[in-house]
């Protein structure tokens, strides 16, 4: 599969759009900062307005970076799952890793960890708490190891899909048990976490998240040839020389790293993972993962940044949770795209 010039132009166009949206995201918020000032903050920090410098460096830039990471990671994870399971409805949450992270968070928040978490939440915002992130990482990691162990045993990707859904169901049930026996206050805290937030990831946390997401993306890109072969199904893939079990482990590993870390740091962010791969296929009209993976990164990032801009409710002081906006804004976009494409049965 080879890239055509049109696809290169489209990639470049998306890159340009990404830059614009990124700058717009930095400028929007309770305090509006002109784009010219943002450029100044970057290139000559000394002449810039110190308040704006602070807002951008400490709040908006980390948030925009988190949006970039989450946008890339979730979209690529979704693409991998849709190809691995040959299912257009698959997303990174399908393996149960996202709900695994949720279970860890629930465990900390709902089992009397209230004192510690409440303090942490007040200091850093809901998703900024180290305790919560650690718990989410640990339990997402545990679920990932379980999924990987099972994936090595199975012959069939379809079985893997069902088992992933079952694991997700079990972890959700455990979370519900905790919720049932908890105070309404604590349940509300947990509920806040499930709304997702890009704003709480700063400093060291951002570096850690970047590292893990970068690792996941590199593995994903390296596995693009395997993903291409899997388009024809497992039998053909094997006949072309793919060791299907190993490929499955590598792909699940990559998606788990992406989805697990992003959910742990930002809370669950739905919709991006399922929708962006479809948008990427529509725009680039290809099945080659060598093109689709970068395309998903760009589109996912643009989409999440746009959602973040909308979440600021321009002209208002309040901010809506990101998880609500992604579904509210994104779903109509996908419906329109798919209707225009007209070949809905192309799966």
């Amino acid at each position: 599969m080879t890239e055509s010039p049109i696809q290169k132009i489209r990639l470049a166009g998306l890159l340009l759009l990404l830059l614009l949206v990124f700058l717009l995201d930095l400028s929007m918020g309770t305090v509006k900062i002109p784009v010219s000032e943002i450029v100044k903050v970057f290139f000559s920090p000394r002449t810039a307005n110190p308040t704006w410098h602070f807002i951008i460096a400490k709040i908006r830039l980390p948030k925009a970076c988190a949006a970039v990471l989450a946008g890339c990671g979730l979209s690529v994870g979704g693409l991998q799952m849709q190809t691995l399971f040959r299912n257009p409805l698959a997303d990174p949450a399908i393996l149960g890793i996202t709900s695994g992270a949720g279970l860890g968070v629930a465990a900390v928040m709902l089992t009397g960890g209230s004192m510690a978490t409440l303090f942490a939440i007040k200091e850093l915002g809901v998703s900024g708490s180290w305790l919560i992130i650690t718990a989410a990482c640990l339990s997402a990691g545990a679920v990932m190891l379980l999924v990987l162990a099972l994936s090595r045993q199975l012959k069939d990707n379809v079985l893997m899909l069902i088992i992933g859904i079952m694991i997700g169901s079990i972890t959700l049930a455990l979370t519900s048990v905790w919720q049932y026996f908890s105070d309404p206050e604590q349940v509300k805290e947990y509920l806040l976490w499930t709304f997702g937030s890009l704003g709480g990831v700063t400093g060291v946390q951002l570096s850690i998240l970047s590292g893990v997401v970068a690792a996941g993306l590199i593995v994903a890109f390296l596995s693009s040839k395997m993903l291409d072969a899997l388009l024809l199904g497992e039998h053909y893939a094997r006949s072309m020389g793919l060791t299907t079990r190993r490929a499955r482990v590598i792909i699940i590993c990559s998606t788990s790293l992406l989805a697990g870390s992003i959910t742990a740091f930002c809370g669950p962010i739905g919709f991006v993972g399922i929708a962006v791969p479809h948008i990427a296929r529509t725009i680039f009209n290809t099945a080659s993962h060598r093109i689709l993976i970068p395309a998903c990164c760009l589109i996912g990032t643009i989409l999440l940044l746009m959602c973040d801009i909308v979440a600021q409710l321009p002209g208002s002081q309040s901010v809506l949770p990101i998880n609500i906006i992604t579904s509210l804004v994104g779903s109509p976009v996908v419906i329109i795209l798919l209707l225009r494409r007209k070949n809905l049965n192309s799966w």
């Binding site: 599969m1 040959r86 291409d228 388009l231 024809l232 199904g233 099945a287 080659s288």
Partner: peptide, 28 residues
Amino acid sequence: DRIRGNNLTVQSLIELGRYPYTGWLGVL
């Protein structure tokens, strides 16, 4: 096995046949 629609063109599907010979990115 049925080939399901997944945006593959005939050309790129046939190119997948070169899988055992191409490098890690699958460039022909």
